[in-house]
């Protein structure tokens, strides 16, 4: 019971964190179809902006400034870079944003050094929200979950209940029609890209105070955010949320399970042979828990290529 509750709690919050980081990419990659590899680096940039603000003007101004500044960078990147290469296809976008990722990481290392920086949340936020089975549950985890929840509700309402949302969704399906109706398509795309980048910046500023802010924090998320977007279904905010939660829960639960393929062989009496064979057969589930997202993506793509909530191929 304890295991079940604690694992669920941890998994949900980890999933929400994942969603927070990848929500912006759902807009950029999912809706606009732009392969923005530097998304996780935008997230890192947000964390470093948050860190700098905490040192100078305070934690909360950082939370506000990070999305604004990263969003502004997004505008610049879309307007002056990606728009020029969009017509050449995915590979060019990928390559361009790959270069951007290198630049962001190296510039951060240049100014902030190679080691993690001490980005701390305000001390009044450092307390246990509640205690469950003798385990303190930090308030900040709930805060992260709450911000992610807000992002989800905001995005969902914006996309489904407002005029802007309708235009944006229409623009991703029938760009020429939307343009013919008199909407300024390039501005819409720029706005969506900026919003996506800003969300990454916000995620960085929020999560960076809890998880270490270091020059390596982007690499960890680099491809994972794409996994979330693809598993959820391109362009589906609900899908991204479900995928993030699935991955979070999956990892959280598998950590506690010492299953290995060899155990399966044990059922048919081949256990000792499998143990002796070693390698892939004796690998415990808890050991490879964090490689599971890729397995999940593989499975989803082969079974339901449009993703969990996607409706196009």
């Amino acid at each position: 019971m304890e295991y079940l509750v604690v694992s669920t709690l941890n998994g949900v919050v980890h999933g929400l964190l994942l969603f927070m980081v990848s929500a912006g990419l759902t807009l950029i990659f999912g809706m606009m179809g732009v392969l923005n590899f530097s998304h996780a680096w935008f997230y890192m940039l947000g964390a470093y902006i948050g860190f700098t603000c905490t040192r100078t003007i305070g934690f909360w101004p950082g939370i506000i400034l990070a999305p604004l500044l990263v969003g502004a960078l997004g505008v610049f990147v879309e307007r002056y870079m990606l728009r020029r290469v969009h017509k050449y296809g995915h590979a060019h976008e990928l390559l361009l944003t790959f270069g951007l990722a290198f630049i962001i990481e190296e510039v951060i290392k240049l100014f902030y050094g190679d080691f993690p920086v001490s980005y701390q949340m305000p001390s009044y936020m450092r307390f246990a929200a509640f205690t469950i089975f003798d385990t303190n549950y930090p308030f900040y985890r709930l805060f992260i979950g709450g911000v992610a929840g807000l992002i989800f509700v905001g995005l969902y309402l914006l996309l489904t209940r407002t005029r802007i949302g309708i235009i944006v969704r229409a623009a991703t399906f029938r760009p020429t029609t939307v343009e013919a109706l008199g909407h300024n398509l390039p501005v819409i795309f720029m706005g969506v890209f900026a919003a996506g980048a800003a969300l990454a910046g916000l995620a960085g500023a929020v999560a960076g105070a809890f998880f270490p802010t270091s020059p390596n924090m982007a690499t960890d998320f680099g491809t994972l955010v794409f996994v979330v977007t693809v598993v959820g279904g391109l362009g589906s905010v609900e899908g991204a949320l479900i995928a993030s939660l699935m991955i979070g829960l999956f990892i959280s639960f598998s950590v506690g399970l010492n299953w290995a393929l060899a155990d399966l062989f044990g059922i048919v009496g081949l256990g000792p042979w499998a143990q002796a064979f070693g390698g892939i057969l004796t690998l415990k589930l808890s050991t490879i828990a964090n490689s599971m997202p890729f397995l999940l993506m593989l499975f989803i793509l082969l079974v339901r290529p449009a993703g969990l909530m996607g409706d196009r191929q």
Binding site: V85, Y88, H92, L95, L96, F102, L110
Partner: peptide, 19 residues
């Protein structure tokens, strides 16, 4: 030590100007 920065710049420039 910053060669990756130059490499990144190179990627961006090539994609922008020599697609």
């Amino acid at each position: 030590r910053s060669w990756l920065l130059y490499q990144g710049l190179l990627f961006v420039l090539v994609m922008l100007f020599v697609p």
